[in-house]
Design a protein around this nucleic acid. Structure first.
Length: 421
RNA sequence: GCGGUUGUGGUGAAGUUGGUUAACACACUGGAUUGUGGCUCCAGCACUCGUGGGUUCGAGUCCCAUCAAUCGCCCCA
């Protein structure tokens, strides 16, 4: 019999926990600076929260963990935005808080994909949503937050790619132009693109299969179909990024995988070759109709999500120094039948705010010293049956040879005096 | 969903055209030193080679299946 984690899932073992605590710390600090509020939504929702009509994305159509429990169909969340907007509408937060509502979330997401580097079936995302305000400067600020977090993790080899999808009128005009353009070339396109042609012709543009086709190269450009309002909006986003000193690249083919985006879309990618096929660090965009979709008022929002596994792995590649668990202040060695006294002394240290561990099982002196070394204990305290009888103990600093025999109640002051020396 | 590569102890790994007792190193445990660590020396540590079948007198080595990891495609964070 063989037990193991399901495919695409993994255990985060204690030895890797410093990295997670570090990235979580950075995220909480940064979101505090920007004054975002954490929101926690369920790990599963009614399937219809995610399975939106007319959505062409693979994530929604073939990668969801969906199950039936008699009273309905439920789905493990594949992304964070839908749940946040659903909660925003369900609790009518638009009526009780100042707009934009600024939310962040952090937790597991689930997608049934073939795992590879930077892609698991259960993975962790941090994301933010600004709901109920439409401002190009807010778009820029949102991107800036993501960039700040990436930078704080010591990741510098990044590129901000940005594009606009325009408003409904612009996109509709472009959509028609694209359909007209591709109609005579349909038989040159792949099967997926035939589906895209019907559901979301914009996505034909970032199809990787047919990238050499002439009909793709000379396809009409969205930028030619933007109306005045959409163009002005995008220009202001770019101007705000310039003002913040955030370099970017306009990528006209960037259309994003979720169908709900309007206006600004962006993707921040790693430029390191080792990051492989999963180079996207964070990505997101503006959505004009999501809030009303779930029953709320007409409100626009913008957000992004970061894959934390990718963030950590890139931080490692760039040599980021993750904080480490502090070494032990003291290790208490016991010889003979003195475990109760060892425990008492260890507790005494802890209650004084010192990080301490004591040996509570019968082991040789040598192995106990080895434990103290391994745990990088600053002080080593040795007590045997004689010391317990006399109310004394032996203490030495790991780095020094000198050992002192002191009264048990002098322990704390001895340590402080020795450290101050 | 498709294609490539890989799978030997706690870890890194040797393992010749299939041939008897699965190298070596690190780590770990014990001892030399029965109450003083970091060095050294000695000893111990894989009834078995991801799992299940098959071929063979004989399989870690060959074949099939399966699981997993990894890389690429698709997709995405």
């Amino acid at each position: 019999m063989n037990y193991q984690t399901p495919r695409g899932t993994y255990d985060i073992l204690p030895e890797d926990m410093d990295k997670w605590h570090d990235v979580e710390r950075v995220i909480r600090e940064e979101t505090q600076l920007y004054r975002y509020n954490e929101i926690r939504t369920p790990y599963f929702e009614s399937t219809n929260v995610f399975a939106r009509e007319n959505d062409s994305s693979d994530m929604v159509n073939k990668e969801m963990y969906t199950f039936n429990m008699g009273d309905g169909s439920y789905t493990l969340r594949p992304e964070g935005t839908a749940g946040v907007i659903r909660a925003f509408d369900q609790h009518k937060l638009y009526g009780s808080m100042e707009m934009p509502g600024r939310f962040y979330y952090m937790g597991a997401m689930f997608r049934h994909e073939r795992p590879q580097k930077g892609r698991q079936r259960q993975f962790t995302q941090f994301g933010v949503e600004n709901i109920g305000a439409k401002s190009p400067e807010l778009d820029a600020e949102t991107i800036a937050l993501g960039c700040d977090i990436v930078k704080k993790m010591g990741i510098s080899s990044v590129k901000v790619c940005i594009n606009t999808l325009g408003d409904d009128a612009s996109r509709e005009a472009y959509r028609e132009a694209l359909k007209k353009h591709f109609a005579p070339h349909l038989d040159e396109l792949c099967g997926d693109c035939h589906r895209r042609y019907e559901q979301n012709p914009l996505r034909i543009l970032d199809c990787k299969v047919d990238h050499d086709l002439d009909c793709l190269k000379n396809a009409p450009k969205l930028s030619d179909y933007l109306n005045e309002e959409s163009r002005t909006y995008f220009d202001r986003v770019l101007k705000a990024l310039d003002a913040l000193g955030i370099p970017y690249e306009i990528d006209e083919r960037l259309v994003r995988g979720l169908d709900y985006y309007t206006h600004t879309v962006f993707e921040v990618v790693s430029t390191r070759p080792e990051s492989g096929a999963q180079a996207t660090i964070f990505a997101g965009g503006r959505y004009d109709h999501f809030v009303e979709y779930y029953g709320g008022p007409e409100m626009s929002g913008i957000g992004f999500a970061i894959g934390l596994e990718r963030l950590i792995s890139l931080a490692e590649e760039e040599g980021h120094n993750f904080g480490e668990t502090a070494p032990l202040d003291a290790y208490v060695i016991g010889l003979g039948d003195v475990s109760d006294s060892v425990l008492q002394v260890t507790q005494q240290l802890r209650h004084e705010g010192l990080c301490a561990e004591g040996n509570l099982v019968p082991r040789s002196l040598k192995s106990q010293f080895k434990s103290a070394d391994r745990k990088k204990a600053d002080f080593i305290i040795i007590m045997g049956e004689d010391e317990v009888k006399n109310g004394t103990l032996n203490i030495k600093k790991s780095s020094e040879k000198e050992q002192k025999t002191i009264k048990q109640d002098e322990l704390i002051e001895t340590i402080h005096a020795w450290e101050g020396k």
